[in-house]
């Protein structure tokens, strides 16, 4: 079965064809191809069917080196994944997860996987054993090193409703950052750019929090698709501050692309959100590594 075989023509249904999706130059800044499977390599290859079918130009994995559950503990698949990053360099990039409860070890990992390795940035995971969010001063040496390396910085954020009284963010896991935590960090490093991942889960609230901080991008994958959410984000933040994530394979590319297609945007603005903005963000480290990048 080829990923290019279709019995369904999306153009007949008011949607872009695969060729048009390819022309959007989609860069997936939130790729979970290696996450949550007994054999992450097999899962990656199985998911490539959908990467190809939906015309994704580049996938940026968030789990290179260790695992999201134990970022500082090497995974038995590290070598195989590193090899995949090299052989698929034209279509695959990686961020390495860090643990802000252990800044020294996190910086050592960044040296290994970014300065001397194939990764282009770091990921803050949605919770950690030390219970340290991205707001904590422990993060400062991590961010200073990331800035020196031109690394991209992706921070998982959520605002899960809970607690007594019930309020957004009170059901977050220990160490799971909120958009307010990202804002606090971004304020300490005004010349460094950050991605506020998942739009805080609750995008109406998350966007408000990061709105004043021009050095924060919004990424809105991994939560349900809500009609109007991208229109709202563009209205409040401007189209240049939004990056796209696919969150596959656990989320559908259809879901995440649908969020953008729902928005009343010009074609150039769609291209910015679906990949152009992230390419601009990642261009310095691509060039530093000697990799070709077309913005």
């Amino acid at each position: 079965m080829s990923p290019h075989d279709f019995h369904f023509n999306p153009a007949d249904y008011g949607l872009p064809t695969r060729d048009e999706l390819v022309a959007y130059r989609i860069w997936d800044s939130h790729f979970h191809g290696f996450y949550g499977a007994q054999n992450p390599i097999e899962q990656f290859h199985a998911n490539q069917f959908y990467v190809e079918r939906m015309g994704i130009e580049r996938s940026i994995s968030l789990e290179i080196g260790g695992t999201l559950a134990a970022p500082l503990t090497p995974s038995p698949y590290d070598d195989a994944i590193r090899q995949l990053l090299e052989t698929h360099q034209d279509r695959l990039s990686g961020l390495t997860p860090i643990e802000p409860g252990f800044p020294d070890e996190s910086c050592e990992k960044m040296e290994k996987w970014i300065r001397r390795g194939p990764c282009i940035g770091i990921k803050y995971v949605g919770g950690n054993k030390s219970g340290t969010t991205c707001r904590h001063p422990n993060n400062d040496p991590i961010i200073r090193l990331a800035a020196e390396l031109n690394a991209t910085i992706y921070i998982h954020t959520w605002l899960k409703i809970g607690g007594t009284p019930r309020l957004p963010g009170r059901d977050n896991l220990p160490g799971e950052s909120t958009p307010a935590d990202v804002a606090a960090l971004a304020q300490r490093f005004p010349s460094v750019r950050f991605i506020c991942g998942h739009s805080g889960g609750d995008w109406e609230l998350g966007v408000r929090v990061i709105r004043p901080h021009k050095n924060i991008f919004l990424e809105f994958a991994g939560s349900d698709p809500h009609s109007g959410q991208v229109d709202y984000a563009v209205h409040e933040l401007g189209v240049d501050r939004i990056v796209w994530g696919g969150h596959g394979p656990s989320r559908s590319y259809a879901t995440e692309i649908g969020k953008v297609l729902d928005a009343s945007l010009s074609r150039p603005d769609r291209i910015k959100i679906l990949g152009g903005n992230f390419r601009g963000y990642a261009a310095p480290i691509f060039r530093q590594k000697g990799w070709k990048i077309t913005l």
Binding site: M1, H7, F8, L15, D224, S227, S252, T255, G258, L261
Partner: peptide, 24 residues
């Protein structure tokens, strides 16, 4: 689940999955 969800998401899923004509 429109209009809460974008109608595009469900229609695009028909493209994403490799379905034959009888299934569609």
């Amino acid at each position: 689940h429109a209009p809460y969800f974008p109608v595009e998401t469900a229609v695009l899923k028909l493209m994403e999955s490799p379905l034959d004509r009888p299934q569609l």
